[in-house]
Design a protein around this nucleic acid. Sequence first.
DNA 1: CTAGTTATTGATTGATCACTAACTACAGAT
DNA 2: ATCTGTAGTTAGTGATCAATCAATAACTAG
Lengths: 198, 198
Amino acid sequence: MQRRLAACLTMTMTILSSSAKSNQRRQTVLEAAVSCFARKGLYGTTTHEIAERAGISQPYVYRLFPDKPSLFASSVEFVSDLMATTLAEKLSEAAASVNSPENLQAAAHSAYTDFVVESDVMRFLMQANCATDEPIVANAVRACYAKQVMVVSEHIRSDEAVRQWFGDGMLENVVASLGLADINEPWARTLSGGLTRS
Amino acid sequence: MQRRLAACLTMTMTILSSSAKSNQRRQTVLEAAVSCFARKGLYGTTTHEIAERAGISQPYVYRLFPDKPSLFASSVEFVSDLMATTLAEKLSEAAASVNSPENLQAAAHSAYTDFVVESDVMRFLMQANCATDEPIVANAVRACYAKQVMVVSEHIRSDEAVRQWFGDGMLENVVASLGLADINEPWARTLSGGLTRS
DNA sequence: CTAGTTATTGATTGATCACTAACTACAGAT
DNA sequence: ATCTGTAGTTAGTGATCAATCAATAACTAG
């Protein structure tokens, strides 16, 4: 956190305060940013929308973050940390209550699902994958994957299984964001994995 | 094609010509649009960029398509058709030259990879998944998945295997768009599946 | 040759948006 | 009381962009 801040300072020469209160504000802005970016991505979201949701004026966003791509990248770091800790926790729980490897993988899958579905995190991560034309975002996304792979690999040892875990998650993201669980057609049932929303 | 055109007419009351020449132009614009949208998505791409790449003036885009979201949705239909035919072809080839089900799945996987990697199609599809806040885009994306699932299910009978095929493809998309094959760190190797670019 | 249609463009506009500048309010510290 | 720094605002600017319009060029049919 402090490291990134310092980097911003040297890069942009913008003076960003780092008091306790401003860091707290930064966090509320990041939460708002994740929700807004989740819907329309980096370019489709206005800083005004984010400010409004965070309950501050739009220009004040620029006192807290140097520019929009940096705000987006910081949002990626934010959910990256959140996801890593949540995942580590859930995976440890799952590992404790389950012994066979297949069951662990199933538990790992539901660990992701519980965290990500019905929140903005999922859609935001999809948006992040798409905003990698902006180099600062690409780096944040790579770092995010690095962290998640390290957490998951801690519990699922086979590379192949880890890869499948990520692939499953990505498919699930798409299925959820398209609302396929509510579509009663063969192709939708196939992609949903037979599960229908109650 | 004609159906969609009629829909546009009734929806927007814009008169869109449908002569041979204008349909050909439309296709040129769609190819350009896929390339441009692939990089910065629906909101990050300007109609001017697309027009420039297609070799026409920006206002003329609006004689061929009613508005930007419609152009994006038409682009989705365009790659949907392209992908479906290419995929059907490659899968038939693979099915002819291979007999065991596991080998078929491997062949199916490389069918997708060959088509999608190193072209703009992959990134464009990721962008399409993210632009579903726009209802017209969401419908086009759903129709695209319906079509691809139907094509793939023709050759891979198990729903679970089809799902895995899509999951694999999505992970591969991300790996390719982040250039992980060129990163020599454990997490990147894990996600890349051990493959390095030569 | 003429009348009508289609293809295509340059110029413009109204709105939006990222970002800046300049100000206010208030909290200690001296 | 005054200085100083921090939190936050209102007001403003320049640039950009989707979408429109009016006009022209290039066909096509009789």
